[in-house]
Nucleic acid binder design. Structure first.
Lengths: 197, 197
DNA sequence: TGAGTTCCGGAACAAGGTGTTCGTTTATGT
DNA sequence: ACATAAACGAACACCTTGTTCCGGAACTCA
């Protein structure tokens, strides 16, 4: 499943229909959030027949996956363009994302994820932020790069937890914790060290 | 909303009912995935009346948030127990998670999130893994801590992207990229440096 | 133990979403 | 221009949601 999107079909009607569906879905997600969007909404907005929708896609999900492939292709290309360079994909990716922010917000934005996860991340971010601030001299840092760092730290932690509980938990908590700290601590300490006195 | 869970109600029936609902939902999420679970499923599994469910909760979401508070409380307590120590929460949290893995898998596991995000992360993980391996001497590292590092890196990157597109994108791509690299690069280089020749 | 309150069960309901079918009409590629 | 393939649209059976009602049961507290 989710193999392709065939926007280069010989038939023009197919292209028109699929683009109308994709555009409608992205619009609606940004307006109402992913869960609240129904197939009926999409076909109304796209102004196509119900049977037409199901002739092309079997669900909302499948429509989004069609859009996704552009980005994965982009990622792969950037990585392969600079062999031997670490994280060569990241800057071009951020640039690409800025151009396509509307689409991206619908694809991976907060409204497309679980509110439970979002809430957990928010709580954790508050705690991490407090810990980092406690490490700084009073009135030290500009707050913005610190907040970005907090976001990254929380993202790394949650990703490790997710990966762990999803598998069979053969790793010990100590191993997981070491992995987390090994990845994150050096960068954090480097940033905190250059705090203005 | 989502304030509390009141499992310490004076009335025993209330406790029984709510626990039955929570248990049923967790079981069903692990079996079918969050989206596929309906309220009807839950009340069948919990063996309670439909009206009873809606007397206690207004949706699936709310049931999950009830469970969540245990963890946020735990987090806060651990962080405050060791003031001035960075990331004091992380090891106790991993230990706590191991004990409650069933619940956690339902709360924040992959089945509870968007398949689109999951797919993006998978693709990105493949790319990052390839880049790290290219940096290692042949046959160098034990693969497992490397995979954990990949997971953390991808988690940090995706979290930054999400935060960015969710806001108004006032940061430039360069600033975002710098934040990502500043957090992650020191740890990565430290790990790769200690690779066995 | 009893009195009074609170909760549960179960059926029924309207409203709305889903996914499929089928015959007709319209657009397309060669 | 013609054969083909796609879109339309109405109708459909089915499922999910959230609400209402009331008789009967379980509970708390004294």
């Amino acid at each position: 499943m989710y193999e392709y999107d065939c926007l280069n079909t010989p038939d023009r009607r197919v292209r028109r229909t699929r683009q109308a569906i994709q555009r409608a879905l992205v619009e609606l997600i940004l307006e109402k959030g992913y869960d609240a969007v129904t197939v009926t909404d999409v076909i109304d907005r796209a102004d196509i027949g119900r049977s037409t929708f199901y002739a092309h896609y079997t669900s909302k999900q499948e429509v989004l996956f069609g859009n996704l492939d552009r980005f994965t292709e982009f990622l792969r290309a950037e990585s392969e363009a600079s062999p031997g360079k670490l994280f060569a994909f990241s800057l071009p990716m951020f640039q690409h994302i800025q151009e396509q922010r509307t689409l991206l917000r619908a694809l991976i934005g907060r409204r497309s994820g679980s509110p439970v996860v979002a809430h957990s991340e928010k709580v954790l971010a508050g705690i991490v932020r407090g810990e980092l601030l406690a490490y700084l001299p009073d009135g030290g840092h500009p707050p913005r790069p610190l907040d970005l760092m907090v976001t990254g730290i929380v993202g790394a932690f949650m990703a490790l937890v997710r990966e762990w509980v999803e598998g069979d938990l053969t790793e010990t908590p100590e191993v997981m914790n070491d992995a987390f700290l090994a990845l994150v601590l050096p960068g954090v300490e480097a940033l905190l060290a250059q705090a203005p006195g």
